[in-house]
Every structure is written in C-alpha cells, then in structure tokens.
C-alpha cells in the first residue's frame, strides 16, 4: 500500500523520538506527536490506511481520489458524517477522545476503516 508506506517514512523520526533507541516497536503502531494531521486516502473503493492509530488531538483528513463519490460515516455515530465527497474533495475530523472509531462509506458499505485514538 503506497500511502501507508509514505506515512511510515514520514513518521520514522517521530517513532524514534517516542520509542527511544532500545525499545522495538512496529512502525505501523507508532503514534505521531499531538497536533499532527493524518491523511487517509480513499482510493479504489477502500480507505488507505484501513486502520490508523493516532494520539488524542489528531486531525484526520480523508481525500477522495476515486471518480465515485464516497461518504465518510461513523458506524456508531461517534462523529459527524461527511457530505458526499466528490472526486478530490476532503473531509477532516479532529479526535479529542480516546477510543476505537469504526467508520464506513454509507453508500458503499463494504468500505470500512478504523481510527484508534490513544
């Protein structure tokens, strides 16, 4: 997954800073520093990365790269749904409370993603 790989490259210095030298931790599990914006790409009827772990206060921005519209919808109505995101449109949510936020596309419900806020 290209977007995920890009994210890891960008996040690596943060990973080192948070984990220290001696602690081993997988890059995908590493939380970025507070106040950071994270991108989720909507591409080929999928969210990428499908699962994202972020600290409290992180702003998550979804960008629709498909020619089809998509709607970011919280499975438990834990955050407001986006409007129909046409090609190139973005939607942002800032997560202030820890928890696991499952979301999906309300018109293509097989598209499911998770934001884990720690």
């Amino acid at each position: 997954m290209k977007p995920s790989w890009t994210w890891r490259l960008i996040s690596m210095p943060a990973a080192v800073a948070l984990c220290g030298v001696a602690v081993s931790c997988a890059a995908a599990d590493v939380a970025p520093p507070k106040g950071v914006t994270h991108q989720v790409a909507i591409q080929n009827f999928a969210f990428a990365p499908k699962s994202l772990i972020v600290p409290v206060g992180t702003r998550v921005v979804w960008t629709n790269h498909d020619e089809e519209p998509h709607v970011v919808t919280s499975a438990g109505a834990a955050f407001a749904s986006s409007k129909a995101l046409d090609s190139g449109d973005t939607y942002a949510v800032t997560f202030f409370k820890p928890g696991t936020y499952t979301y999906y596309c309300s018109i293509h419900p097989m598209m499911v993603g998770t934001i884990i806020v720690q």
């Binding site: 499975a75 979301y103 309300s106 018109i107 419900p109 097989m110 499911v112």
Partner: peptide, 8 residues
C-alpha cells in the same frame, strides 16, 4: 437505504 458497515 440503512446500509450497515461492512455490508451490501
């Protein structure tokens, strides 16, 4: 209508 996450 009323589509559920992960469903059809």
């Amino acid at each position: 209508l009323n589509l559920k996450a992960g469903g059809l």
